[in-house]
């Protein structure tokens, strides 16, 4: 186990492994997403309070879960790269940022699309949406920092420190926003939450969530390969790929 971990921490071995894994992960993700889509749009019964609009939850909740999950992966990969100087971990952190930002944006946009008919407004300063917005700022900051530092090694290390600071701050921000919104929000506003959920509603949600996770895995592998090709462009194994 540990031995294979060492083996695939080497960029060239990882590159080959990831080429073999990607089609399987992408295929499984596509199947799960299609199955989840059928369940979400067709088989799940409409919610008795929210009607058909509740179906938005099937894309909103997995995106919101992933937005946080990807940030944790990013920070963990950053630390791994910083402490053990693993190039593959640096690539993982850097490749995760745009996907995480996309998931965060998606969670915000679908939340807004759900809010319009439910709250009567495109945006309500709901605790969860607000935290999601701040998370998007954190992602944008990370990406901006990566863009500003030209030396890749230094960018990865600086990004790791930033991600750790962000990770410590996420729960603080989340709870302070929650505190703030309970002070300012009228009690009539329905919370944007999965309703007391029936099993026929839950299964599509879990399938979608798993589909999103595999989608991220497949996508991050492709992005990591690009990162490694660019970072290692002058090393022997990358030259061999060309010939």
């Amino acid at each position: 186990m540990l031995e294979s971990l060492y083996k695939y921490a080497a960029p060239q071995n990882f590159y080959q492994l990831s080429r073999r894994l990607t089609p399987w992960l992408a295929g499984a993700a596509a199947l799960l997403l299609l199955a989840g889509l059928a369940g979400a749009l067709w088989f799940a019964p409409p919610d008795y309070q929210q009607g058909e609009s509740f179906r938005i939850i099937y894309v909103h909740v997995p995106s919101a879960w992933m937005s946080l999950f990807v940030y944790v992966v990013l920070a963990a990969a950053g630390i791994t790269g910083l402490v053990w100087k693993v190039k593959v971990a640096d690539a993982l952190a850097r490749a995760s940022a745009p996907i995480g930002a996309a998931f965060t944006f998606l969670a915000l946009a679908t939340g807004s699309l759900w809010g319009k008919p439910m709250w009567g407004a495109w945006w309500v300063w709901d605790a969860r949406l607000t935290s999601e917005l701040i998370l998007l700022f954190l992602y944008v900051g990370y990406i901006a920092l990566q863009g500003a530092i030209e030396d890749r090694r230094m960018a990865a290390r600086a990004g790791a420190v930033l991600a750790v600071i962000g990770l410590i701050n996420i729960p603080i921000i989340h709870y302070s926003v929650e505190w703030w919104s309970t002070l300012h929000q009228g009690p009539t506003v329905t919370r944007f939450d999965a309703p007391a959920i029936h099993i026929s509603m839950l299964i599509p949600l879990l399938i979608m969530a798993l589909g999103f996770k595999l989608y991220y895995a497949a996508n991050v592998l492709v992005r990591m390969r690009c990162e490694l090709l660019e970072a290692e462009r002058n090393s022997a194994w990358v030259r061999q790929l060309g010939s």
Binding site: L37, E52, R55, I56, V59
Partner: peptide
């Protein structure tokens, strides 16, 4: 509009 908008955008 909202449901298909959300799924289309996603």
């Amino acid at each position: 509009l909202y449901v298909w908008g959300a799924y289309g955008l996603s």
